[in-house]
Design a protein around this nucleic acid. Structure first.
Length: 875
DNA sequence: GGCGTCACG
DNA sequence: ACGTACGTGACGCCC
């Protein structure tokens, strides 16, 4: 057996060092990780280079140490540990445990003393010893057998202190380092030393006299000087300082060298901890990743004959799809598990199986799923009405943290430390290489998903309850998923011939504009290419450059609008752009999405995507159909009811975000304005410009409206100046005036940013959370962004909470009243229904009633509504 | 696949 | 001194 090598780490000092050396990184849940990360990279490097046989990380035990007996002020005046660092210590301990390295701390002693004691003991047994710290004081421990590693900037840069290195650097022996500190003191530990003596003088004196004691023995012979006076005045203090700086190498520790054997890391545990900390680069680099990836064995069957007795009262079930387009793709198979028996059923077998259909439709048979909305929608296509979903992993994860990206079971599971599911890409390949594997591979993959959902259900339930978010998840998002699924499956009818006709008319106008533009440019070019357009406008025609992008000249609409007076081509380009957008996105794009079987579009509402709690809509996006400009608005004429003598009925919240702001800020002025039912922008203009209502001009109202928008977005003078095309100074004055008129809003904004800094997240009315790790960033940009987000998210998110609740209430109400009317779309602050004419009167009564009372605020909610034979006419 | 642009709330 | 309005999705271009 070779020589033993002992590695002793100074836990506290290394954590502090790493914390201040690295930017404030965070994991996906918003916990700061920079100290743990720096510690880990340092450790990885040293482990690789040194291959120790024994290891220990020593920590300081508490506030007081034996040193305080002789000097009360020891380490006094220290800043208290920043909370961003404190929160990392539990993770640091977890990490060390995963490495299977011993940790130790001892009441009344510092990490230094534990390290000194063990270093001495190990030296006596002829071991090689390496001490690692961020604190140079420990260099006093260096001997022929003990090398002291001090980390420098970046943590992996290490300076190795041997006696020879210390001699070279200071001209002193390691033990004289203590004398040096006795003379010069140490501000960080509040060790006084001799005032006026710094490093240079201390070294000079020690070279001459050898030690503090020898110096004072011979001080009588020293020739008179200011320095001599200072030394004489502070003799006691110098001696005390030396004592304080001396590492105690005979601490009464209970741990022995035999306890310190280092077996190497528990790779599984370590990966879990890294996973939790989001150390993605380390996970990728780790060479044990491959072995670890080997998942635990899962026993499962493949069965075509499912009988009733196999389907339990509570099961996880996963419906495996070809891709995310569940309104058109195929089902590949089903995975079922109750934690004991796990089995795969191919699609064909389910299709024909009455027992499975009955079980899936049975409300009392409880299902744990992930993305139950997708399952509901695709099952509907084969005439199965899914019921009894009591857990949806996708939604639970989203509520726990909306920043979790990815909607497949493998990705979600990993977020919560469960790694026994393969990525879809691994099983199917991607792009052109996508292919369904042989049935055993497919079956195992799907079964593993079901098992993951089964395993994580209790984990997520506990987490949501801890965060007081279980109700939000269970009573809001979960029932909403089913409602959204029905809305998607129902779809909305599109009149293709209307679209085609509009397309033809557009085509004419577009080619006419094209001709004009080529004429004025003097050449043909691709108008759709910002690059080519930039060359024409700013080089060939010599128009002034207003704004640049990363890649060249900006040709955005706000820029072109400023250039209109410079050249007639500009207006043509603006018109061309507008029409080209309509043609490509809303005519051609929409036609591609219409299902031929029913002439309907079936959007997919993404329920677990946005950072704020809003929905989004894809394929097609029905939340951004044009309305602001008449030409575009006409697109809405193509959206029609699915049955004859029905109408489209639209109801929207008026100023919901400002009402939410009034509620949350409790600003008296704003609350009052809404209670009186005033036009909020006019009211804002009155307050900001100090004029009565009748003197508010349209320009004043426009400015006030922009300020109101800005307030909701987390205002900045720059942003407001851009939107109103005024100077920053003017914008800043507007904002000041606004905040003077609405002091409650100012307090709210200040407080919400403070709260975000303290907690690391902000919340909505229904306790939806958004983590804001950048809120403490030292990067101005990142921090400012996070601050604006802290102001905006509770507003936008609470508005989302309200309309989601309204959808649930509305769904119940339609059923209660036995109406045929159907909810089809949600567009952030409005709901769109289709309804038989004879139900219009009822909707006019119940829709506003339900929406206005979805959640009671300190101000009334107001809903406007209308209906017509097309979406365009519902205005 | 990233970027610029533009549609919506 | 920093360089921004908040939240989305789809299109065409270009590498």
């Amino acid at each position: 057996m070779g020589k033993e090598k002992l590695l002793l780490l100074d836990g506290n000092s290394l954590a502090y060092r790493a914390f201040f050396a690295l930017p404030l990184l965070t994991n996906d849940s918003g916990i700061h990780t920079n100290a743990v990360y720096g510690f880990t990279t340092m450790l990885q490097k040293i482990l690789e280079e040194e291959k120790p046989t024994k290891m220990l990380v020593a920590f300081d035990a508490g506030k007081t140490t034996f040193r305080h007996e002789s000097f009360e002020e020891y380490k006094g005046g220290r800043q208290k540990t920043p909370p961003e660092l404190s929160e990392q210590f539990p993770y640091l301990r977890k990490l060390i445990d995963a490495y299977q390295i011993k940790r130790y701390e001892k009441e009344l002693y510092e990490a230094d003393d534990i390290i000194g004691t063990l270093a001495k003991e190990a030296s006596a047994k002829d071991m090689d010893v390496i001490v690692v710290s961020g604190d140079k004081d420990l260099t006093q421990l260096a001997t022929e057998q003990v090398t002291v590693y001090i980390t420098r900037k970046g943590m992996t840069d290490i300076e190795k202190y041997t006696p020879a290195h210390i001699e070279e650097k200071y001209g002193l022996t390691p033990l004289q380092i203590i004398d040096m500190k006795g003379l010069m003191g140490d501000t960080s530990d509040n060790i006084p030393g001799v005032p006026g003596i710094g490093e240079k003088t201390a070294i000079k004196l020690l070279k001459e006299y050898g030690s503090v004691e020898a110096l004072y023995e011979q001080i009588a012979d020293m020739k008179q000087s200011k320095m001599k006076e200072k030394l004489l005045d502070n003799e006691e203090q110098a001696k005390l300082s030396k004592k304080l700086a001396t590492i105690f190498t005979e601490a009464p520790i209970e741990i022995s060298l035999d306890d310190l054997n280092y077996p190497g890391p528990n790779e599984e545990e370590l990966l879990n901890v890294w996973q939790e900390l989001s150390f993605k680069s380390l996970i990728e680099k780790s060479d044990f990743q491959m072995e670890e990836k080997e998942t635990a064995e899962l026993k499962f069957d493949i069965t075509e004959n499912v009988t009733e007795d196999m389907l339990q009262d509570v099961m996880a079930v996963h419906v495996e799809l070809e891709n995310e387009h569940y309104h058109s793709c195929q089902i590949l198979g089903f995975g079922f598990t109750d934690g004991v028996k796990t089995f795969f059923v191919p699609f064909e077998a389910v299709h024909q199986n009455e027992a499975i259909k009955k079980w899936l439709e049975d409300e009392t048979k409880k299902k744990y799923m992930s993305d139950s909305k997708a399952a509901q929608a695709i099952l509907k296509r084969i005439d199965i009405n899914l019921h009894g979903v009591v857990f949806d992993m996708l939604l639970a994860s989203y509520i726990a943290n909306p920043a979790i990206s990815g909607d497949d079971v493998a990705t979600l599971s990993k977020e919560f430390g469960y790694t026994d599911v393969q990525a879809n890409e691994t099983i199917y390949g991607k792009g052109a290489k996508w292919t369904v594997p042989e049935i055993h591979v497919l079956a195992e993959h799907v079964c593993r998903k079901a098992f993951a959902i089964w395993s994580l259900q209790p984990v997520l339930e506990v987490k949501l309850k801890e965060n007081e978010q279980f109700n939000l998840y269970h009573d809001l998002e979960l029932p909403l998923a089913s409602i959204l699924g029905s809305m998607e499956s129902e779809g909305i009818k599109v009149n293709i011939s209307t679209l085609k006709q509009m397309g033809e008319e557009l085509e004419q106008k577009i080619s006419a504009l094209e001709k004009e533009i080529y004429e004025l440019a003097g050449e043909n070019f691709n108008i759709n290419s910002p690059k080519q357009l930039g060359v024409i406008l700013f080089e060939k025609l010599g128009l002034p450059v207003v704004k640049k992008t990363k890649t060249g000249y900006s040709t955005a609409a706000d820029v072109l609008e400023k250039l209109q007076s410079e050249h007639t081509i500009v207006k043509y380009i603006l018109d061309y752009r507008q029409l080209a957008k309509l043609q490509s996105t809303y005519i051609e794009g929409l036609i591609k999405e219409v299902h031929s079987e029913d002439s309907k579009v079936h959007t997919r509402f993404q329920q677990a995507l946005t950072a704020t709690g809003r929905l989004s809509s894809t394929d097609p996006n029905l939340q951004n159909i044009p309305i602001r400009l008449e030409e575009g608005r006409k697109i809405r004429q193509a959206f029609v009811p699915s049955e004859k003598d029905w109408v489209l009925f639209a109801a929207d919240y008026s100023q919901i975000e400002l009402r939410v702001l009034a509620h949350m800020s409790q600003d008296e002025n704003l609350v009052d304005a809404f209670k009186q039912g005033m036009d909020i922008h006019t009211r804002t203009a009155m307050d900001v410009f100090h004029v009565p209502a009748e003197e508010v001009t349209s320009n004043m109202r426009r400015a006030a409206k922009a300020v109101n928008f800005g307030i909701v977005y987390g205002i900045s003078d720059y942003g407001l100046s851009q939107s109103l095309d005024i100077t920053r100074k003017e914008a800043s004055e507007f904002i000041d005036k606004y905040l003077q008129s609405f002091p409650g809003v100012k307090d709210y904004m200040d407080n919400i940013v403070q709260e975000a800094k303290l907690k690391g997240y902000v919340t909505t009315i229904l306790n939806r959370r958004r983590y804001l790790p950048d809120i403490t960033s030292r990067n101005f940009n990142l921090r400012s962004f996070a601050e604006r987000t802290a102001m905006n998210t509770p507003i936008q998110g609470s508005a989302a909470d309200i309309i989601k609740k309204a959808m649930i209430d509305m769904d119940a109400r339609l059923k209660e009243e036995g109406l045929k009317s159907k909810l089809l779309l949600q567009v952030h602050d409005e709901l769109i229904f289709e309804a038989p004419k004879e139900e219009i009167e009822i909707l006019e009564r119940i829709v506003p009633e339900v929406m206005e009372h979805a959640i009671e605020l300190a101000v009334p909610l107001k809903v406007d509504f209308s209906y017509g034979s097309t979406w365009y006419d519902a205005k």
